[in-house]
Structure formats: structure tokens, C-alpha cells
Design a protein around this nucleic acid. Structure first.
Ligand SMILES: NC(=O)c1ccc[n+]([C@@H]2O[C@H](COP(=O)([O-])OP(=O)(O)OC[C@H]3O[C@@H](n4cnc5c(N)ncnc54)[C@H](O)[C@@H]3O)[C@@H](O)[C@H]2O)c1
Ligand SMILES: NC(=O)c1ccc[n+]([C@@H]2O[C@H](COP(=O)([O-])OP(=O)(O)OC[C@H]3O[C@@H](n4cnc5c(N)ncnc54)[C@H](O)[C@@H]3O)[C@@H](O)[C@H]2O)c1
Lengths: 251, 251
DNA sequence: CCGACTTTGTGCACACGTTCACAAGCGCTA
DNA sequence: TAGCGCTTGTGAACGTGTGCACAAAGTCGG
């Protein structure tokens, strides 16, 4: 290994210098769980919760992976990131896995959520029973529309966006959901950040600029649609190519 | 190159044998665009459309990448997958890029969308102006609730799920959006698939089983929240570790 | 107590995706 | 036309994620 090519220019990776760069994700501790694995753990957790309700007490990696729609080796590797809680020759205890995944995902602590922008989407989110049911109580709603302020939606009164700092502090909001029109999103984001919210879920189709310590995830339906569209197009292309090149003309 | 290690076991990649395996994604043609790049192309497209409206005619990879929130090298590589449409020393013509990305994403063709499950979320989706605005006209709505059948939502009458085959064929639906309660999702999915829908966007928190030729994307808000929760927890852990190990106790 | 059988946990190789760094190419100026 | 400065396009290194295949470790029947 090493100097395979003759012109290695002493790549030293600039030890600890790097000015204001992007911080890919993890640097310090090597024992980090891959982001992709975290997303899957959340899925396993949902499947396992369902199984627990059906009084299933034990499950093998093969069965669980089928239910979660993944490869069984991947499932075992994912679970290995959080520890060794299986019994060889038997499988995993459902309850143990639920507890351990919840621990790793930080679900032992409740995370209060606020929704900003109580329009079509905001209403649906505020009324969604799936959040509180999974440890994410919606505890504050915000909008700028005077007709909405003070109105109860899903059992919670809508506050004015100007009150974000106070209300978020009082109700210990740790996750902010942005469901405003695109032009308002960055402004709302800035307010949330200065109110101390460190996690943001953004539905507005804009790229948010945030400081390094804030985690943003976005849900962009148009992008999802376009990815689907791409696959349709690619498939059509392949079919066309197959017709042209490979296929023997019948007759 | 070649036999670096002493025990090369003649890895021949089993020429064309592979029985009924999973087909990871692409195999045949090497000139495939990475999935991750496709998602970003959709984002670039949105940014570029905004620029075009502001009469920006030319943009460099540096500027565009900043606006899209990615590394400029990544942006250039992404664009290189679709061809060479830049001018060295100058940058890219906005209009050209828009056209080319739309071509690759298959957006030259309109993709009719249907929404199944017109509850809280389904209403929001049916009323969402962002879909038709981006080439995805919502052309059919379905539910099982008799009180909803025949009612107009967002200008379209709600049909009964039993009519999925007929209505989807008539209106040439190519993308199905599932917004039903979780237990109904798989059934709805099966109906859509047998009606010939090949792309599905699923909001119900369940793992859908579909044939190989159907493309499914899921939007799972609880999973998104849990990923955010994980990062909060990890951050808290790191802080605690830093306190314990490294930091000098003051005083 | 042993040996057969089952399933986990993981080392390893490969595939995919990201980033760097720079030659190639273009426009502009003299 | 030659030279200069700028930006693209990409080869190659690197890092991350995936999947195979198997040893390790357990259960269970005899
Ligand atoms: N409706 C959908 O199904 C859907 C789907 C995908 C994405 N989105 C995105 O979600 C966002 C909301 O969509 P919608 O359909 O609910 O829009 P909407 O117009 O129905 O609601 C927007 C709400 O935000 C409020 N608002 C405006 N400016 C604000 C500000 N500065 N601070 C706080 N609140 C403010 C408005 O008063 C309104 O109540 C948009 O960005 C949209 O692109 C919506
Ligand atoms: N509301 C949200 O913000 C939100 C967020 C994330 C995920 N989801 C998920 O989206 C789905 C819908 O959520 P919602 O809040 O709109 O629920 P909802 O109960 O308001 O609406 C569900 C609708 O589906 C219809 N339906 C039931 N069975 C059906 C069937 N077999 N075929 C067709 N339609 C059927 C019902 O009549 C109802 O109109 C759920 O799976 C939910 O978990 C919702």
C-alpha cells in the first residue's frame, strides 16, 4: 500500500485545521451508527411494536427482516450496532429489542413538537394521532394569520409566530415542524433556531440554511414524485433499447 | 494489480448465472445515474426554476451548489451524469439545465396522480397546488367512506376504491399515493398494482409488498422524527462523555 | 454429556457514493 | 494569435454501506 503512484504530494489531511467546513456527520467517535441503519432501526421498532401487541415474544432475524422488507444479514448487522441481544439458535426477544432500540433512538425521553404554519398540511399534522402515540406530543402550534391565533386545532391553541421564543421555552419544544409557504420557511427556521430548537423537519420545498449544531430533515413530495417519474422514464428507455438492439424481429 | 493477496479464489463473478436473485437496482447498462444523484437533480431543478423566473440566465457550479446546499464537486458530477452542458470558464445556462434535467427525470411527459384515502392528509394532498404546478396533476381521488364518495375535493370528485381499475385506466394514472390508515394500505396497494399503477408513494407506516416491476417510495414522518430524536440523544451522550473524561473540573 | 441442528454476530470483499485536485477547454484581452 | 484566468468535467482516492459466508454459541434430543 502507500506510494503506488509516483506523485504522492504528501496528503496530510490538514490536521485539525479545516476552517468553516460542512462537517460530514461523524468525526470524533468511531463507534457511530450509520445514518441508514438508524432509519431502519426505526422501521424495525414499528414492526416489533406490532408483534408485541400480537403477543409474539421471540423472532428470528429471518422473520423480522422479511417483515421489515430488508435482507436478513443487514438486519443482523443493524442490530449488532446497538449490542448483542439475540440468542444463537433461537432469535431475539421482541420486548428486549423494543427497549434497546428505543434507548438508542432516545425515545425514553419525550420530545415535544411544535408545528409552524397551520394551513392544509399543518392541520393534518396537528390532528395526526401517530405522533403522540410514538412519543412525540405536539405541544405548540404557530401561524401568522390573525384568524387562526387562539383557535384550537387538535386540542391545542394556535399561537403567533412572534411568541415562538417564549412558548417553545415554556413547553420545552425540541423539534420544530415547518409547514409554511416556501418564502416564509427560512424566516421561521431562523426563529426556531434562535429559540433553541435543534431539530427541524421541513415540508416547504426550500433549502434551509442552519448553523452546524442544528439537524434538519426535509420531506419534499415533489422530489419524491420526480424520482418515481425518473424510474418510469428509465424503464421506458430500457424497453425501447431492448426492442431496438437485442430482440429478434418475429416473423 | 491482481493477486495482491495470496489466496485469490478465481473470482469470476459467475457469468450470467445468478438464479432468481433480488436485482439490487441496475445491472444491465453501466451508464446508470445513482439514485442519490437523481434526488439531488430534482432539487437543482427547483432551484434553477426559481432562478429562471428571476431572469438569471447563467450560473456557475459554485453558485448553484451553494443555493442547493451541496458541495460544488458533487454538483458537477451529478450534472455530468446527464451530459456536458456547461461552458468552461463561464458556467451553465439555466434554461439548458432545466430542459435537460426535466428530460432525464421524465418530466416532459405529464404523470397523472391519484390519491387514495381522503382523510386529513388526503385532503391536504388533494388541495396541494405544488403537484400540478410541477407536472403531476392530481386526476383521481378514492375512499371507502360513503359520505365522501361523489364529494368534490380540490375540484375532483371522490370515487370509490372499487372503481380504481376503471378510473385509473380512463385517466391514465401513473402514480398512486396511499394515505389510508395503515391496515388498509396493503390492500389498496394491491388494487393499484393490479390496475397497472407502477409507482406508489406511501404515507401509511407499513412496509408494502409489491412485485419487482413496481417502484415504491415511502414517507414516514414518525421515522423522520425518530432519526431527529437519535441525533439529540447522541449529542447529549457526547456532551456527557466530554464532561466526564476530558474536561477539567473548574475551581 | 454429547453431537446435531439452528441462528446469531461479524470479517471480508465488493459496490456505491463523496470529495479532492487538476488537466482540458473556453472567453477575453492585448 | 498567444497568453491568461476562470470554470468545467473527471480520474482516482477515500469513506460508507451492503451482502456473503462462516465460525461461534446457543438449544434440544438422546
Ligand atoms: N398541502 C400539501 O399536501 C403539501 C404537500 C407537500 C408540501 N407542502 C408544503 O407545505 C407547506 C404548507 O402547505 P399548505 O398546503 O399547508 O399551505 P397553506 O397555504 O394551506 O398553509 C400555509 C400556512 O402557513 C401560514 N403562514 C404563512 N406565512 C407564515 C409565517 N411567516 N409564519 C407562520 N405561518 C405562516 C399561513 O397563514 C397558512 O396558514 C408549503 O410549503 C407546501 O409547499 C404541502
Ligand atoms: N395526518 C397526518 O399528518 C399524517 C402524517 C403522517 C402519516 N400519516 C398517515 O397517513 C395515513 C392517513 O392519515 P390521516 O390522518 O389522513 O387519516 P384519516 O383517518 O384522517 O383518513 C384516512 C382516510 O382513509 C379512508 N380509508 C379507510 N380505509 C380505506 C380503504 N380501504 N380504501 C380507501 N380509503 C380508506 C378513510 O375513509 C379516511 O377518509 C395514515 O396511515 C397515517 O398514519 C398521516
Amino acid at each position: 500500500m502507500g506510494a503506488r503512484r509516483g506523485e504522492d504530494v504528501e496528503v496530510v489531511t490538514a490536521p485539525g485545521r479545516l476552517p468553516g467546513n460542512d462537517e460530514p456527520a461523524v468525526r470524533e467517535r468511531a463507534r457511530a451508527i450509520p445514518e441508514a441503519a438508524v432509519a431502519r432501526l426505526a422501521v424495525y421498532l414499528r414492526v416489533l411494536s406490532g408483534l408485541a401487541e400480537q403477543d409474539v415474544t421471540t423472532i428470528s432475524s429471518e422473520e423480522l427482516s422479511a417483515a421489515a422488507g430488508v435482507n436478513s444479514a443487514k438486519l443482523r448487522k443493524d442490530l449488532s450496532y446497538i449490542g448483542s441481544y439475540g440468542t444463537r439458535g433461537v432469535g431475539y426477544e421482541v420486548e428486549v429489542l423494543v427497549d434497546q432500540i428505543e434507548r438508542i433512538l432516545g425515545l425514553t425521553r419525550k420530545h415535544s413538537v411544535c408545528v409552524v404554519g397551520i394551513g392544509n398540511l399543518g392541520h393534518a399534522l396537528a390532528n395526526y394521532a401517530g405522533f403522540p402515540g410514538r412519543g412525540f406530543p405536539v405541544s405548540a402550534l404557530f401561524d401568522v394569520d390573525d384568524d387562526l391565533i387562539g383557535v384550537p386545532v387538535g386540542g391545542i391553541l394556535v399561537s403567533h409566530v412572534d411568541d415562538i421564543p417564549r412558548v417553545c421555552a415554556e413547553r420545552e419544544v425540541s423539534i420544530g415542524v415547518i409547514a409554511t409557504p416556501p418564502p416564509a420557511a427560512q424566516g421561521v427556521c431562523d426563529r426556531l433556531v434562535s429559540a433553541g430548537v435543534q431539530c427541524i423537519l421541513n415540508f416547504a420545498p426550500v433549502v434551509l440554511q442552519v448553523p452546524d449544531h442544528v439537524e434538519v430533515r426535509k420531506v419534499d413530495l415533489a422530489v419524491e414524485m420526480q424520482i418515481l417519474s425518473f424510474h418510469v422514464a428509465r424503464r421506458a428507455d430500457e424497453a425501447a433499447n431492448a426492442d431496438e438492439s437485442g430482440m429478434v424481429v418475429p416473423g
